[in-house]
């Protein structure tokens, strides 16, 4: 496996009306790399609209960046040969945010698993395929008989999201691109989900790009964290360092936004809306390019 994913100066602009120059820049000159070995979890943290999900779409090859390139094994993912493309597809797999919309309501949930089996030629016979599916479902702590043959609307959000994990488990990619996978799950199911991700890291050596706006999940996962704001990565480092000694004002603001689980420490300070703007205005460093973080 050519196991490295690299973003080199990725920029993504979208046409938009009512903006001065006719487009908005969702991702602005982002560079970072992810290595498959040793397996790790890298979190990408930022507020809504900061460009996190766009980066996920770029990495997954669903959206061609306006400038810059996404490299897999040193090659641009939009210029891969057939064999390389097949390998890239197999090796970089997503878990999406919305456990409801990810399933086509027309089909039973088994279909996403069978489709993955067929497209990536994981099993030659139906019996073998079923065996793989059941094994993967058990790996994400789902009982096959409870989910197979059902329609998506008959399962809970947590079950559906774990079926997506079962799909990942079957494909064994080197990279999981998880775009806000737990934002629509409740607290207990969320921990469950994160544990499975950690499990995948240690047992199957999968590297996860974990995209979220929620610092508590980042803290739980550990590993590295990148902070993104306004389409630029402003900080990268081990979770403990970034959490305790944030260097960028935006990171500080983000950390201040976590409520303390202590009844005596009520959330008294208010963040004025314009403070978010001021952070950038007051700090010219935010406009300069962040150094390309190296792992």
């Amino acid at each position: 496996m050519k196991s490295e994913l690299e973003l080199r100066g990725v920029q993504q602009r979208f046409h938009a009306r009512g903006v001065a120059d006719g487009y908005i820049t969702a991702v602005d000159d982002v560079s970072f790399s992810l290595a498959a070995s040793p397996p790790q979890i890298v979190s990408l943290v930022g507020q809504s609209g900061s460009g996190k999900s766009t980066i996920a779409r770029n990495v997954l090859g669903l959206q061609k960046p306006t400038a810059g390139s996404v490299l897999y094994g040193g090659k641009d993912i939009f210029k891969l040969s057939r064999a390389e493309y097949d390998e890239y597809r197999r090796d970089v797999q997503p878990v999406f945010q919305d456990p409801y919309a990810i399933f086509n309501p027309f089909y039973r949930v088994d279909r996403v698993l069978w489709k993955a089996l067929k497209k990536f030629k994981l099993a030659d016979t139906r019996a073998k395929g079923l065996e793989l599916i059941e094994e993967s479902l058990r790996a994400v702590r789902l009982e096959p008989e409870n989910v197979l043959g059902r329609y998506p609307h008959q399962l809970s959000g947590g079950q559906r999201q774990r079926i997506m994990l079962a799909r990942v488990h079957m494909l064994r990619p080197s990279f999981i691109i998880a775009d806000e996978p737990v934002s629509m799950l409740d607290a207990q199911v969320r921990k469950h989900f994160l544990d499975i991700l950690l499990d995948f890291q240690t047992k199957h050596g999968m590297t996860t790009l974990f995209i979220t706006h929620d610092l508590s999940t980042v803290y739980y996962l550990g590993g590295e964290v990148m902070v993104i704001t306004k389409g630029q990565i402003v900080e990268r480092g081990p979770v403990s360092t970034v959490m305790h000694e944030p260097s960028h004002p935006y990171t500080k603001l983000l950390l201040d936004s976590i409520p303390q689980p202590d009844p005596d420490q009520r959330w008294t300070s208010r963040i004025a809306v314009d403070e978010l703007e001021r952070v950038d205005d007051a700090n010219p460093a935010a406009d300069t390019k962040p150094e390309a973080p190296i792992l």
Binding site: R57, L60, G61, L62, D86, R89, V92, Q93, P94, F96, Q97, D98, A101, I102, F103, N104, V112, K115, A116, K119, F120
Partner: peptide, 13 residues
């Protein structure tokens, strides 16, 4: 633009 279309695309459809 539904996610299931994206999922189909990353499944090489």
């Amino acid at each position: 633009t539904r996610p299931y279309v994206d999922l189909a695309r990353v499944s090489k459809a």
